[in-house]
Amino acid sequence: MKKPELLVTPKSVEHIEDLISSGADAFIIGEQQFGLRLAGEFSLKQVNEATKVIHAANKKVYVAVNALFHNDRLEALDEYLMELQRIGVDSIVFGDPAVLMAVRELNITIPLHWNPETTATNWFQANYWAERGAKRAVLARELSLDEIIEIKENSQPEIEVQIHGMTCMFQSKRKLLGNYFLFRKEAMEIENRKENKNMFLHDKERKNKYPIYEDLNGTHIFSPNDMCLIDELTELFEAGIDSLKFDGILQSDDYITTVTNLYRQAIDAYFDQGEEAYEALKDDLLEKIEVIQPPLRPLDTGFIFKETVY
């Protein structure tokens, strides 16, 4: 059996060095003008630096180009893709077909990962985008374990699944926080809060807290819990999922580094020593995460064991 890739989201070039030591195999970086909801903001210069560091360690670097583009960003998109080609990153992550079109027009040879987030829900779509050039499909986080396994069994491209961290549940183009403050005639609040990512919405009825922030792409709202599958990985391992992603958005550097290492241990235990070694270790790993888990972020297993109706 092939070891799955452990994919993480660094916050800076320095952070990448720590994460390499912690056992990460691959990294997602980028900037908000082109990529959605990144843990860190990396200018092209930093992408260049990061790529050198990552390649020197024989690891992979993927760049998020998965924004929903409007006409006004298409020109910049072309230039950005050409720069990524020049730097030689290992993949371009896209959701908008405009990126696919630009890649074709510009003869970009960097492999593509298809990630439209919420709408990647079945194996047919994974194969559809693979036929059009995607080497990998990143699945929606709203799928159950059985659905993920069935997709893997029927898909041509590599499959990437999120195993830890918060997930986005809403993106609006509107500036909803700014609008709220403006409505309350508190424009100062907006000025003061440009880089503030500590806000959350309290849903009193469900007793949930949803992180919320604004950036160039609009307003983003996140799940009330952090998904954590560190003790539920056996079936994903057995299914042969190619890449396991820990999305560290809105988490601290230390948290991301530590949790990366715990997943490294889980993967190595299973693949180097066997299922029993993983089974023996997993509760301990989960406990270690629970200890460092931020107070406002309860853990759950996302939609892995949850059924949705419609």
């Binding site: 987030e117 919420t118 809403f170 993106q171 926080l177 849903d203 949705t308 419609y310």
Partner: peptide
């Protein structure tokens, strides 16, 4: 690009189950 419904009521918004959670009030 919205799955508020999935999280809040286990109804899949992208398969017709949207419960319009965006119309509710929240505290910031």
């Amino acid at each position: 690009r919205c799955v508020l419904s999935n999280h809040m009521t286990a109804r899949d918004s992208n398969r017709g189950g949207c419960c319009q959670s965006c119309r509710w009030d929240y505290d910031l």
